[in-house]
Amino acid sequence: MAPVIVTEGVTRVYSDDGVPVHALRGIDLTIERGEFAALVGPSGSGKTTFLNVISGLDTPTDGKVWLNGKLLSRMSGNALSDFRRDNIGFVFQAYNLIPVLTVEENIEYIMLLQKIPKAERHERVLAILDEVGLGGMESRKPTQLSGGQQQRVAIARAMVSQPATIMADEPTANLDSKIGAELLDMMYRLNMQTEMTFIFSTHDPMVMARARRLITLKDGQIERDEVRSP
């Protein structure tokens, strides 16, 4: 398998009122295509910071990150935007749908940035809505959906442009366990069908149980890296 993400000595230091806070301390990691991996660890261990750094949302203080073979630190702001648009899908804990857009418009947003023709966008939105079990809800606004439905839309939005990697930051944290399990099943199924790489940052034992690789962070370092059989 080809590596999707390679990090080399990634360090991230924040300044908190002039006091340096080491969020990440020289992380070396390789994630292969098609992995279903979870970053776990206690609060403040650096999970979200690491997820942000490997997706190009944050810049490491030191070290290098390659995503799909591209060194992120060499990219300009616009190039990085384009790269994220074409290579990464995001699922956030708080769903983060755009409230003024309908379900369909939220899902097609990235395809719009990719200048995909309207007819194709519409077709792909309807197909993915069926896949996440929200067929017929394309005209609704996010406020008209339950939390579970909003997270399904967020997953559909992340996946519709078929990126190589999905980064999910605590995707089940705001959902009850039944809906969380359903969504996790759905992502697992998609991972198996499409070979899309899924990287979670999570506290949720259910996600940990499903992950085929568990990367445990503590104090900004990898404490344990465990690969499990499917």
């Binding site: 935007s81 648009r85 939005r157």
Partner: peptide, 16 residues
């Protein structure tokens, strides 16, 4: 702010 952050994360350019 959060919304603009999300738009940028999804690949929206600063100029947009």
């Amino acid at each position: 702010t959060r919304e603009y952050g999300v738009l940028k994360a999804m690949g929206t350019k600063p100029s947009q």
